[in-house]
Design a protein around this nucleic acid. Structure first.
Length: 505
RNA sequence: GCCGCGUUCGUCUAGUUGGCCCAGGACGUAAGAUUUUCAUUCUUAAAAUCGCGGGUUCGAAUCCCGCACGCGGUACCA
């Protein structure tokens, strides 16, 4: 039975790279008929941000990434929040010490800092490892009774992993193959902090083991510490049930280099967060995909293809199709630069798939927000007609407004281009035609386009676009006569009259 | 510095066992068609000496070695 987990730290809003990690875990679980769980890794009390956990749950819910177990839905392996599991970790740390895999260290942050400074002064770096541990204050160098005494006195200590010297540790990564590192270069990582909380490394291994996780799919930033994790499984004697690892490539900035960071989003004009985030401390607001009007399916599809592809030329996939097609072996090894244009394209594609009724409802909301008087009952018709030129819901009002309110000003450039001095005469003729000819599409088409414009050798582009300026305010929009039919005779004539009176060339 | 990972059109990528690749698709860009306009749509084009340099081979993007560059890690953060 496949069991995977998404294990974010509640230190702020969920980054879009984290969302992708969650998505890949989800796709992998579903594809293999396994379980997906959400575990909150809040072992760093100093970085805890209120609301972050709720944000994570809400964001993933919005995107349709569902969990079988987790902090918000419960489950047989709970609790799923590491702070709620706090009492459990000390025992494991002590077991490691008892078995000789770890030791107590009493070095203060200041003394550690001094060692680092001293090393730096000699152009070296200090690392707490097999070469230095015997010159530090720990249970390896202190007499046993002294260690006992300090512990009994309640002196602050940490538990460090005692990396065996000179062993090659190989991590079998599902995406990268074998990655080998020598323990000589690895440092004695703190497993248990002086505040009584475990570090990521300890908590992660203990919980993954206890929760019977079979596959760990996480960001590439964890690859360097993967050997430590492998060693921990060995030290605990859990190597036979050790999960398989997959380290995902990072999401990079669109320009330049480097990891996509929280600041890049608004600077570059696209969100890096799924949902808008209001920082409780600074009050700073970061935009979110949802608030920008992105459809969750578009975000999911776009994210899925950033670092993975089905091996075919298919690019548009529903969540179900992604589940069906997903294959961790097809995840690429190199980092992917985030591309805003592609994100917009996905959004446009998915917006087009929306029901006319759905789009109409969105439009209706915006119309109500802008127009005081009621009386426009063709919202659905407008939605049908205008949908294809919309990417985001928020564009609805701006591109459709002339269906609901008459223009109050006329685009100067368009006027200069299309409204010739004799246009007042032609527009007056348009009014006459509308007034006398039966108000039907074909009849007006015949009278205006065929008989008047073509019959008199006038320029179609000039006259029709001037009419458009009069009715719309500028030279954009759908078929002119369709628009006129929708607005009705009176409203159209009113608008043309006003244009004649207002526009001076 | 040290360790690790990576490197195919501007971007995301196809290319899994070397020949069907003088490298395919998509986004974006350009041109054209359609539309009375704009957008949509459609067609076409430009765009990668496969990071560089060696090698192996009849033949390499694909295998080997070296180098360069980028990124990640190097915290009592995750």
């Amino acid at each position: 039975m496949v069991r995977v987990r998404f294990a974010p730290s509640p230190t702020g809003p969920l980054h879009i790279g984290g969302v992708r990690t969650a998505l890949y875990n989800y796709l992998f679980a579903r594809k293999n008929g396994g379980k997906m769980l959400l575990r909150i890794e809040d072992t760093d009390q100093t970085r805890f941000v209120p609301g972050a956990e709720q944000y994570i749950v809400e964001a993933l819910g919005w995107l349709g990434i569902e969990f079988d177990e987790g902090v918000h839905v419960g489950g047989p392996f709970g609790p799923y929040r590491q702070s709620d599991r706090k009492p459990l970790y000390r025992r494991y740390a002590e077991q490691l010490v008892a078995d000789g895999w770890a030791y107590y260290a009493f070095d203060t942050p200041q003394s550690l800092e001094e060692r680092r400074k001293a090393a730096e002064a000699q152009k070296g770096t200090f690392q707490y490892d097999c070469t230095t541990r015997m010159s530090m204050e720990n249970s390896l160098t202190l007499p046993a009774d002294e260690v006992r005494r300090r512990l009994d006195e309640g002196q602050p200590y940490v538990v460090r992993f005692k990396f065996p010297e000179g062993v090659d540790i190989t991590v079998h990564d599902m995406i990268r193959g074998e990655v080998t590192m020598n323990s000589r270069l690895l440092d004695d990582k703190v497993l248990f902090k002086s505040d009584g909380m475990p570090t990521y490394h300890l908590a992660n291994i203990v919980d993954d083991h206890l929760m019977e996780i079979t596959h760990v799919i996480r960001g590439e930033e964890w690859l360097p510490s993967a050997p430590l994790h492998v060693m921990l499984y060995r030290a605990f004697g859990w190597e036979d049930t050790m999960p398989r690892f997959a380290h995902l490539p990072l999401l990079l900035k669109p320009e330049g280099n480097g990891k996509l960071s929280k600041r890049d989003g608004d600077r570059l004009g696209f969100p890096v967060f799924p949902l808008e985030w209001h920082d409780p401390k600074s009050g700073e607001v970061s935009s979110g995909y949802r608030e920008q009007g992105y459809l969750p399916q578009a975000v999911v599809n776009m994210l899925a293809l950033l670092g993975w592809n089905p091996g075919t030329e298919q690019e548009l996939m529903t969540m179900d199709e992604l589940v069906e097609l997903f294959d961790i072996e097809h995840v690429s090894k190199n980092g992917a630069k985030f591309n805003v244009d592609k994100a917009r394209w996905f959004q446009h594609e998915y917006f087009q798939q929306l029901d006319d009724e759905t789009v109409a409802a969105m439009l209706d909301d915006q119309v109500r927000a802008h127009v005081v008087e009621a009386g426009h009952d063709y919202v659905l018709e407008v939605a049908k007609l205008m949908k294809e030129r919309i990417t985001f819901p928020r564009e609805l009002w701006d591109t459709c407004r002339y269906f609901f309110v008459a223009p109050t000003e006329y685009d100067a450039k368009d006027v200069a281009k299309r409204w010739s001095p004799d246009m007042h005469i032609h527009m007056q003729k348009v009014i006459d035609i509308l007034d006398t000819v039966p108000f039907e599409y074909d009849a007006i088409h015949q009278a205006l386009l065929e008989d008047y414009i073509k019959g008199n050798g006038l320029k179609m582009g000039s006259v029709m676009n001037s009419l458009r300026i009069a009715v719309v305010g500028r030279t954009v929009g759908p078929d002119m006569l369709t628009l006129v039919m929708m607005l009705g005779k009176d409203e159209t004539i009113k608008r043309v009259k006003r244009a004649i009176d207002t526009i001076t060339v």
